[in-house]
């Protein structure tokens, strides 16, 4: 037999996993299993069998799961991108099913998100930079969309008209702060579509950003996201205005997407001819 892509194991890993296979076979659940699985996980956090068996052992031993959770805090930050780490946390929290644990979890998540987005405080970073980093955090925008629109109506949010106005104001403010941020523009488009609000209602807000006469570097990316406000049933003159902007994107400001903008122009022109 000629194995494909064998991994050159260290003696330490080989011994630990040999031992682990023996334990799985015998079905042993004991505190040394917890030590062993932690040892393996630290060497290879993607070892899903070690995680599975560790969880089974914790339950069998009636181990305090909140202690396990604290141990996991360190591992989660160290192996932020490893699925198993988070899956294990989720199992623990579900089993714990307690309010203090859930609250601690929220605090922990905030820390982890900060690490993930490198949005933690480092000396020399100004408040403005931190705020900007937050505005640019695409995850935060998605989270907001879910909380506001997809998770049921929260107390105080019964007036949906008011909620929409609040979200529009919030988003416009953030766009004004960092106009070339596609995450915020995508959110703006998302809430308009979700609430079936015509894009034309925000024309006056958008227009200054869409001016094709300006040509600062920031401008280049801003205009990218302005393809919509003139369209949607309006046709005629507003379509021609959109086409004009798209042409400048295709030829000057956003040439990497030249073919995309040309495709939009073709689509728009054929829709007026209909």
């Amino acid at each position: 037999m000629n194995p494909i892509a064998p991994i050159f194991y260290t003696e330490e890993y080989k011994d630990a996993t040999d031992y682990f296979r023996g334990i799985v076979k015998s079905g042993e659940t004991s505190s040394r299993v917890l030590e062993l699985t932690e040892h393996i996980i630290r060497m290879n956090p993607a070892h899903y069998s070690a995680w599975q068996y560790r969880y089974k052992t914790l339950l069998a031993l009636h181990s305090p799961l909140d202690e396990e959770l604290r141990l996991m805090d360190a591992l989660a930050i160290q192996f932020l991108k490893t699925y198993q780490v988070w899956h294990h946390r989720r199992l623990l929290l579900t089993a714990l099913n307690s309010v203090p644990a859930a609250e601690a979890e929220l605090a922990f998540i905030r820390r982890a998100v900060a690490v993930d987005t490198k949005n933690y405080y480092t000396p020399g970073r100004t408040d403005k930079e931190l705020l900007e980093a937050d505005v640019r955090n695409n995850s935060a925008w998605h989270h907001r969309f879910f909380v506001v629109f997809q998770s049921g109506v929260r107390k105080g949010d019964e007036d949906r008209e008011l909620v929409l106005r609040r979200e529009l104001a919030f988003t416009k403010e953030k766009i004004a702060l960092a106009p070339n941020n596609p995450s915020a523009w995508n959110y703006l488009r998302g809430i308009l579509e979700y609430t079936k609000t015509p894009f034309s209602t925000i024309t006056t807000f958008v227009e200054p950003y869409a001016s094709t006469s300006r040509s600062s570097t920031a401008e280049q990316e801003i205009v990218i996201d302005l393809e919509n406000p003139y369209l949607r049933k309006e046709g005629g003159a507003s379509t021609m205005k959109a086409v004009e902007i798209w042409r400048s994107l295709a030829n000057v400001h956003d040439t990497v997407r030249k073919k995309y903008w040309e495709h939009r122009i073709k689509d728009a022109l054929s829709s007026i001819q209909k």
Binding site: R89, R90, L92, L93, I109, A112, N186, E193
Partner: peptide, 25 residues
């Protein structure tokens, strides 16, 4: 809402769980 697809539907994954963080990603 952006036009792409996430790994899991967001709504099903919330609750007070670690998945909240995972789902941010």
């Amino acid at each position: 809402y952006e036009g792409g697809y996430g790994q899991t539907p967001f709504g099903e994954a919330l609750g007070m769980s670690a998945l909240m963080f995972r789902n941010f990603i």
